[in-house]
Design a protein around this nucleic acid. Sequence first.
DNA 1: TTAATATTTGCATAATTATGCAAGTTTATG
DNA 2: CATAAACTTGCATAATTATGCAAATATTAA
Lengths: 153, 153
Amino acid sequence: MSNKILEIQSRHTLIKELVSKQEISNQAQFQKLLKQNGIKVTQATLSRDLNELGIIRVPAPNGFFYKINTSGEQSVLRSRLSEEIISIDHNETLIVIRTFPGRAQGVAIVLDQSNSTEILGTVAGDDTIIVIPRSNKNIKNSLEYIKIILGIN
Amino acid sequence: MSNKILEIQSRHTLIKELVSKQEISNQAQFQKLLKQNGIKVTQATLSRDLNELGIIRVPAPNGFFYKINTSGEQSVLRSRLSEEIISIDHNETLIVIRTFPGRAQGVAIVLDQSNSTEILGTVAGDDTIIVIPRSNKNIKNSLEYIKIILGIN
DNA sequence: TTAATATTTGCATAATTATGCAAGTTTATG
DNA sequence: CATAAACTTGCATAATTATGCAAATATTAA
């Protein structure tokens, strides 16, 4: 039958539902829950699914539990990101990004999570981001890098 | 050896620095990097450290890498100031301090209240502090001063 | 439709991470 | 100071997750 894609999609959907509704601490437990919902897979498949979905295992004071990795969504958001930006400017030492009202924090997070050596750090207000470049000497490089990250041509 | 706590703190500091500066994909690699920086621990200790610090292993298209768990306030309570700090960096004109999520304001207050002539002022966001030094010429001094204030060796 | 190509999955196992326990240290208490 | 309690670490290994490979299934192209 050719409903394989739907089968995988619904399994993924169930996995996401489960992970958001209860604290699951390992894949064996996960597997069991899937089975209770009528879906039988091996631990191997589950491992692959979790990685594809960006579902990660985080430590907590009382053990571990799985959760959806929020920073993995940035690539999805990136397409709309450029629409939130009004301008990117700089002087000899700083880069300043102006955004639409209330969007600075969200844009800054993307820059932070890019983990670039070009960027020492950012501080965001409501509609303005200050970016500290690695060095004042090649601030143009940092600027180029930022534009790429934010999907601006 | 009498100062165990400092030993642990500085190891944690190094771990945080390493994880924020490069893509580390497993604990063996981590262990090696620590060793190159003069710190020898077993994989077991590293595993415990990473869980305490809320550093997690996330899947990426090209493998895995460790990162600081940004969403996790459920990570172990940190009472010491230096434990809230991920890295301290600088370029020619500014010093940038990265902290755990939501901790920048608290750390910045300590710097502000130190009333140092080395520091003109600070601006803190959620997890980043920008420190403006008295002068660009002796920024290294300011850096040293900050590390002392924050109890980082 | 058929052949070629690609995808998905399980199995077995490799790779990696977590942890019980005991030894050694440090800190707290009387 | 002496002793107890608490903490840290390594060792050995348990627990858990990732993956190479082959078989089965699905998709694409002709």
